[in-house]
Design a protein around this nucleic acid. Structure first.
Length: 470
DNA sequence: ATAGGGTTAG
């Protein structure tokens, strides 16, 4: 069953909706245990909405509603809410709203649930339409539907994303007055927005208010504060937050340290960043792409090509493919250092991996090569680039035949196989269980940063001997 | 994958 739905999803992702319906209709006649279920139709609706075909999504919903078998077996689930949510999440809020109107016109006795109002509210806020969001609230009041914690959470998040934390704070008072207790999502949004605005005193005040509650701050709460302090250049306060979180057994994540690295990269303190990186490795932290991207960027800026190459090797060894940004940084550095052969090798290797270099990179290289009379190499690059954009699409000569259908199914099966073998996020290290000793390592790590951070800006950073040992 | 967030925009 799982495999079947994964196949339908793959076909939808590839916009092969006709084939998806072929597979579904075939399956309806088949084995009772493998018939399309609620999830199958949810997948189709979401895929249509995402493919920019909102009316096809609506037609699908209406078709499903006609099926008798559907009503019997899925009494507790509400497909209309799924439809509206899919439309709203893909920014077709206006269409969702209009469709809702047609339903209420047809049956005036039917009243939208609080969930439906929340879905619409979220949709309007996501596309920044405050006026429309306000209108939904008026409609709710008129219909006598009480706002719940999700309603308020959605509004708070919306205001915060539009950088209006003051309106969000007002809402917290309002919800309290209405007897709805704010939760972690509400507090985290506000603390994050205040931190982004550099209003860290107020953010800390919110943390205090949050800490009194039964469900205290979460990892996201602390991460938002660390981000805020790091962005403001206050590593000392950021380190204090890390100590605070460790004292309540909330271990910092790779993301937490990522904010420190981001700041160190901004001010060009490569040595401190490398130290932090080494300490992270020692403490057993799983690095993410962002960490490597920052470190390679710093090393390239400092023209330390050998160390940059080493870091890239390490990055690949940990399962991150070389992306466009990283390769570009490396090539530009090699070029600047006049190591042309190596740069050309990287350029060719990029194309071999299926990544098209930026036009700017190509332009700079060929211009320089020609100026130096290296026409052969310039020509080689030109030919390579010219051969890329041509897509190799197979013409639909046997459309409709059994053979064609089988090829679609084969492709979908292999796609779903890929989906199955892909690692789940928990295997990628974010939520990995960390032993008690990790607390100690983290403690050492943050002590280290604190020592470095308390140096005056123009002091020379002590160069530790092992910072070149990757 | 069934109402709200999470992640890092030069």
């Amino acid at each position: 069953m799982d495999v079947f739905n994964a196949m339908v999803d793959s076909l939808g992702k590839a916009r092969e909706f006709d084939s998806a319906w072929c597979v579904i209709l075939d399956q309806i006649k088949g084995d009772l245990n493998e018939r399309p279920n609620f999830d199958t139709y949810v997948i189709m609706i979401r895929r249509y909405a995402r493919a920019g075909l909102p009316f096809a999504a609506i037609r699908t919903y209406e078709y499903i509603c006609c099926l008798d078998s559907f009503h019997d077996s899925n009494a507790g689930k509400n497909l209309l809410e799924t439809l509206l949510d899919s439309l709203c999440k893909e920014k077709h809020v206006r269409i969702a709203s209009k469709y809702l109107d047609t339903i209420t016109e047809k049956d005036p006795s039917w009243l939208p649930s609080v969930r439906i109002y929340n879905i619409l509210l979220n949709g309007w806020l996501r596309i920044g339409k405050l006026k429309h969001a306000e209108r939904i609230r008026v409609q709710m009041k008129k219909a006598g539907v009480k706002a719940n914690v999700v309603t308020y959470g959605t509004l708070v998040e919306g205001f915060c994303q539009m950088s209006h934390p003051d309106n969000a704070i007002e809402l917290v008072n309002e919800m309290r007055a209405e007897g709805v207790e704010p939760n972690a999502i509400v507090y985290n949004s506000i603390i994050d927005a205040l931190g982004e605005a550099g209003r860290l005193k107020e953010a800390m005040g919110m943390l205090e208010r949050f800490s009194i509650l039964e469900m205290g701050p979460t990892l996201s709460t602390y991460n938002s504060l660390v981000k805020g302090f790091c962005k403001a250049g206050d590593l000392v306060e950021a380190s204090k937050i890390v100590k605070m979180m460790m004292s309540v057994k909330c271990l910092p994540s790779t993301t937490t340290y990522g904010y420190f690295l981001k700041y160190l990269s901004k001010v060009g303190k490569t040595e401190v960043a490398l130290d932090l990186y080494n300490q992270m490795i020692k403490s057993g932290y799983e690095q993410d792409r962002f960490t490597y991207h920052l470190l390679v960027k710093m090393l390239c800026r400092d023209e330390r090509v050998d160390l940059a190459t080493k870091m890239i090797k390490e990055m690949r060894g940990r399962g991150f493919d070389l992306d466009l940004a990283t390769s570009t940084m490396l090539i530009h550095l090699l070029w600047k250092l006049q190591r042309y052969d190596e740069a050309v090798f990287e350029f060719v290797d990029m194309l071999r991996r299926g990544i098209v270099p930026q036009h700017l990179t190509y332009q700079r290289m060929t211009e320089d090569l020609e100026r130096r009379g290296m026409f052969k190499t310039a020509h080689k690059l030109h030919d390579l680039m010219a051969s890329v954009p041509r897509s190799t699409k197979v013409p639909n000569t046997y459309k409709g035949s059994q053979e064609w259908k089988m090829s679609i199914i084969k492709r979908a099966e292999s796609m779903s196989q890929i989906l199955k073998t892909r690692k789940t996020p928990s295997e990628l290290g974010q939520n990995r269980y960390q032993p008690e000793s990790a607390v100690l390592s983290a403690q050492r790590l943050i002590d280290h940063i604190q020592r470095k951070a308390s140096f005056k800006e123009n002091n020379i950073i002590h160069h530790t001997p092992n910072s070149n040992n990757l």
